[in-house]
Design a binder for these strands. Structure first.
Length: 499
RNA sequence: GGCCCGUUCGUCUAGCGGUUAGGACACCGCCCUCUCAAGGCGGAGAUCACGGGUUCGAAUCCCGUACGGGCUACCA
C-alpha cells in the first residue's frame, strides 16, 4: 500500500468549528496510525469571507488540541503552497488538461438565466442542475466569444455514455449515484477563480492525497469529484464521510446552541485533552466500554470500521463530566500551572502576588480540582481566599446565622481558634470538633455558622482546610466582622419591632 | 421535486443471525459527610422508526413506507 497522505482543508471563513475539529482529529489519527502524512491546507477560495485572522485562529485551535501537521502553513512541505489562493496557476493548468480531454466548455449563461432554468426544470420533471445549453454551442463561435471577452464560466461536461458513478466509502460502504443526477458543474467562475469542487480535486490530486476524510455534507459532491479525478488521469482517493454533529435540538450546530468554536471551549475552561477525548468519541468508539481515551491510544486504535455512520448530537453535559474527570486527573503541579491563568484573568491576584505562593497553591489545588468541572468555575470557589474582607450573602446569613445562639457560637469558635499553634487543618478541626457538644448544638449548625462567617456563603471548600489557607488573622477578623454584622442586624430588628 | 445518506434507552454508543439488548452521560434513591463536590452501591429508562419478507431463529440480511439530514450555487 502506498504511503497514506490525508489532509484537513478548512475554509478560513470562521474559527475552528467543533465539527471541523473532529474532522481534523480523525484525519490526524488516521495519518498517525498508519505512519502517514497529515497535510493542512487552507481552502481560501472565498475571498469575501476568508481572513488571515481566521487562519491564525484555526492553527491555534488545532495546536491547542494537540494536533500537529507535517505539511502546511508554518510547516512547509514539498507539495506547497498550501493556500489555494496561491495556487491559481495550478488550477489554470488543470483546466487546460480537462479541456484537452474535451471535457470542459465555456458557458455564457447569466446567473439570472440559470436561476430561471433551474426553477422550471426542477419542479417540472425532477431534473436537477444545468440544462447544458452552452455545451451544444458551436466550438468555434464559443471560442471567439471567449476571445472577445464575453463573461463566461467553464463547466465540466459529464460524459454522456455514463450510467452511474459508484465508490466504496470507507465508512458507508458502496454508494452509487445515477449519472443523470450529475450536472455539468462549474469549474472556473467568470472571475477566473476555481470553485470548491474543482480546486479541491486538483489539490488532492497534486498533493497525492490517498484518503479524503471529511463531513457527510460532501457525500453528494463525491461522484462529480471522482469524474474530475478520472479526467485528470489521477487515481481516485478513498473517501470516508463522517456523520454530522448536531446541536441539542437535532439541527445543524450553530451559534444558537452555544459555543461552536474550539477556542470558545478553551475560554470557558475546558481542557484540550477532554475536548479531544469527547470529540474522538463523537462518532467513533474503541469498544463497548471505553470512555476515557488519550491521544496516544486514539492513534493506536483508530480505524474507519469503528466510525459510526449516523449523526451525533453534541452533548455539553457529557463534555463537562469528561472535563471534570480530566481536571481531577491532573497532578498537583499541573493543576496549579493551569489554575494560575484563571486567577490572573479574574483579577484575584497579580502575577507579583502569586509569586512565592506555590506551596499555598499546591495545598489549595486538590480541594478545588475535585469541585470544578470547568476551569472557570474555580474563580468563584476560591475568591474568598484572595480578599481581606468578604460580604456575607443575605440568604446565607438567613440560613446559617439566624439561630438564637449564633453570636455565642461564633464567639466560642473564635476563641477556640486562638489556640492551635500551627493553624493546620488537623489542629483546626481538633479545636472545633468539641464545640458542638459543649454548646449543645448540632455539628452542622456550628460549622455552617463559621463557614458563612468566613466565606460568606453556605457552600464552600471544606471548612478546616479553608481556614488554614486563609490563615488565623483573616479567619479571626472575619468571625469578628460577622459578629458585628449580627449585632447590627439585631439592632435593626429591635428598632423595627421584630424579635 | 430529483438524487444520496441516516434511524438501538433523553444523549453518546456496543451489537456485525441465537445476548436477561451491554457501557457511559444525564436523572432518581441510599451510603459517606462540616456545606458542596468527589467516591461507593442500587434504580428507573430501548416493544432496536414502522410494515413486509428471507431464515428453525433477525436489532443484525432484503424490499417498501415514514421521519430526519445532505446535495441539487459562479458557498465551502
Amino acid at each position: 500500500m502506498q504511503k497514506v497522505r490525508v489532509r484537513f482543508a478548512p475554509s478560513p471563513t470562521g474559527h475552528l468549528h467543533i465539527g471541523g475539529a473532529r474532522t481534523a482529529i480523525y484525519n490526524w489519527a488516521f495519518a498517525r496510525h498508519n505512519g502517514g502524512t497529515f497535510v493542512l491546507r487552507i481552502d481560501d477560495t472565498d475571498p469575501e469571507r476568508s481572513t488571515q485572522e481566521n487562519v491564525e485562529a484555526i492553527l491555534r485551535g488545532l495546536r491547542w488540541l494537540g494536533l500537529d501537521w507535517d505539511e502546511g502553513p508554518e510547516a512547509g512541505g514539498e507539495y506547497g503552497p498550501y493556500f489555494q489562493t496561491q495556487r491559481s496557476d495550478t488550477y489554470a493548468a488543470a483546466l487546460e488538461t480537462i479541456r484537452a480531454a474535451g471535457r470542459a466548455y465555456p458557458c455564457f449563461c447569466s446567473p439570472a438565466e440559470l436561476a430561471l432554468k433551474r426553477d422550471s426544470a426542477r419542479d417540472a420533471r425532477g431534473l436537477s442542475g444545468y440544462d447544458r445549453t452552452c455545451r451544444c454551442l458551436d466550438a468555434d463561435s464559443a471560442a471567439s466569444r471567449v476571445e472577445a471577452g464575453e463573461p463566461h464560466v467553464w463547466r465540466f461536461a459529464v460524459p454522456d455514455d455514463l450510467n452511474e458513478v459508484s465508490f466504496e466509502d470507507a465508512i458507508r460502504g458502496n454508494v452509487t449515484f445515477p449519472a443523470s443526477s450529475l450536472d455539468d458543474l462549474v469549474l472556473v467562475r467568470s472571475d477566473g477563480t476555481p470553485t470548491y469542487n474543482f480546486a479541491s480535486v486538483v489539490d488532492d490530486a497534486l498533493m497525492d492525497i490517498t484518503h479524503v476524510i471529511r463531513g457527510d455534507d460532501h457525500l453528494s459532491n463525491t461522484p462529480k469529484q471522482i469524474l474530475l479525478f478520472e479526467t485528470l488521469r489521477h487515481p481516485v482517493p478513498t473517501f470516508a464521510h463522517l456523520p454530522m454533529i448536531w446541536g441539542a435540538d437535532g439541527k445543524r450546530l450553530s451559534k444558537r446552541h452555544g459555543a461552536t468554536s474550539v477556542e470558545a471551549y478553551r475560554d470557558s475552561g475546558y481542557l484540550p485533552e477532554a475536548v479531544l477525548n469527547y470529540l474522538a468519541l463523537l462518532g467513533w468508539s474503541l469498544d463497548a466500554e471505553t470512555t476515557l481515551i488519550d491521544s496516544r491510544t486514539l492513534v493506536e486504535t483508530f480505524s474507519f470500521d469503528r466510525v459510526s455512520s449516523n449523526p451525533a448530537i453534541f452533548d455539553t453535559d457529557k463534555l463537562e463530566w469528561l472535563n471534570g474527570v480530566y481536571i481531577r486527573a491532573l497532578d498537583v503541579d499541573e493543576f496549579v500551572d493551569r489554575m494560575k491563568p484563571w486567577i490572573l484573568g479574574a483579577g484575584l491576584a497579580s502575577a507579583e502576588e502569586l509569586r512565592g505562593l506555590d506551596d499555598w497553591l499546591r495545598k489549595l489545588a486538590p480541594l478545588v480540582s475535585e469541585r470544578a468541572k470547568r476551569m472557570d468555575e474555580i474563580v468563584p470557589i476560591i475568591s474568598f481566599l484572595f480578599s481581606q474582607d468578604i460580604a456575607i450573602a443575605p440568604d446565607a446569613a438567613a440560613k446559617a446565622l439566624s439561630f438564637p445562639d449564633a453570636a455565642a457560637t461564633l464567639t466560642a469558635a473564635r476563641d477556640a481558634l486562638q489556640t492551635p499553634p500551627g493553624f493546620r487543618d488537623s489542629e483546626i478541626e481538633a479545636a472545633l470538633r468539641d464545640l458542638p457538644a459543649a454548646l449543645e448544638q448540632k455539628p452542622k449548625t456550628v460549622f455552617q455558622a463559621v463557614r458563612v462567617a468566613v466565606t460568606g456563603t453556605t457552600v464552600s471548600l471544606p471548612l478546616f482546610e479553608s481556614l488554614e489557607l486563609l490563615g488565623r488573622d483573616r479567619t479571626v477578623a472575619r468571625i469578628s466582622a460577622a459578629l458585628t454584622f449580627l449585632e447590627a442586624r439585631a439592632r435593626v430588628d429591635a428598632a423595627e419591632g421584630r424579635t
